[in-house]
């Protein structure tokens, strides 16, 4: 069976520094997979390679069997890849709704679309679509706030609405739960499960193990740029390499807390 997203023998070097070493894994359609590992394990680098922020040193990235390794970043979105950023990269000086309109670009490219004075046409479909998405996410009250006026938690929610607006097949989420309170985290978890049920493949980088355990069906563990384990959370937790690299620390902390 073809994976929705597959990476094969991915290598990325920055000069002599090997950030990603021969990493391979696949994600099925509608699956929720987490990429975990300590800081500096290369998780965000893999995201950046998949979304095309940097070129790979060697290896392949396939989307539904199509090799996109050499596809320019701006065209990858057309292959259904959408992502958020660890440090929420919304356009600070634009309003929430303008940020969403920006992300509709994939369905509104071309010179004719670029030159439509939609700003004056308040009933234009682009406004409608953006307002509907905000309504659905219960963020409508913030539609006309500039992003830099919003608290962090709200920015994260807007960022997710934005990422979903491009109608992605594969959604890459870099630490979606970081900085959220427990209620917000639970809400996010429910929302992401619904997204996956609708056929969107989720690849998540996250440090919050409670979140990963409850959201993701499978995890891939990275350490120093290498894949050390892959499987269900219960499976990888038993792996001594994983315990040493990552979960061990967490388990100890939990023991101490208990």
């Amino acid at each position: 069976m073809t994976y929705a997203l597959e990476i094969r023998n991915l290598v990325k070097n920055f000069g002599s520094l090997e950030v990603t070493r021969d990493v391979s894994f696949g994600v099925n359609k509608g699956e929720r997979l987490a990429l975990i590992g300590p800081n500096g394990a290369g998780k965000t680098t893999i995201f950046n390679l998949i979304s095309g922020v940097y070129p790979v040193t060697s290896g392949q990235i396939l989307i539904q069997g199509t090799d996109v390794t050499d596809v320019p970043s701006k065209e990858r979105i057309a292959h259904g890849i959408s992502r958020n950023f660890q440090n929420v990269r919304l356009m600070k000086h634009l309003t929430v709704v303008e940020n969403l309109i920006l992300d509709q670009h994939i369905n509104a490219s071309g010179v004719a679309n670029m030159l439509q004075p939609f700003g004056m046409l308040r009933r234009h479909k682009w406004w409608k679509q953006a307002y509907e998405a905000l309504e659905e996410a219960r963020l409508i009250d913030y539609a006309n706030e500039t992003v830099d006026a919003l608290p962090y938690g709200l920015r994260k929610r807007v960022d997710l609405v934005r990422a979903l607006l491009a109608d992605p097949k594969i959604l890459l989420l870099d630490e979606p739960a970081a900085g959220l309170n427990p209620t917000e985290t639970d809400e996010l978890m429910r929302e992401l499960k619904t997204v996956a049920q609708n056929g969107v493949t989720l690849l998540v980088v996250e440090h919050d193990m409670h979140f990963v355990r409850n959201l993701c069906e499978r995890v891939v563990v990275l350490n120093f740029g290498e894949k050390v384990s892959e499987g269900t959370m219960a499976e990888v937790e038993k792996n001594p390499k994983v315990q040493a690299a990552y979960l061990g620390v967490e388990a100890e902390e939990q023991d101490n807390a208990a």
Binding site: I77, F85, D103, H105, N113, M114, Q116, G119, M120
Partner: peptide, 24 residues
């Protein structure tokens, strides 16, 4: 022109060209 996507893109590019590129 200021009411078009073109102008919106100009503002966005000033904010964050990398993300604009990822948007296509």
């Amino acid at each position: 022109l200021s009411q078009t996507r073109f102008w919106l893109y100009l503002t966005a590019i000033k904010n964050d060209p990398t993300v604009c590129d990822l948007f296509g």
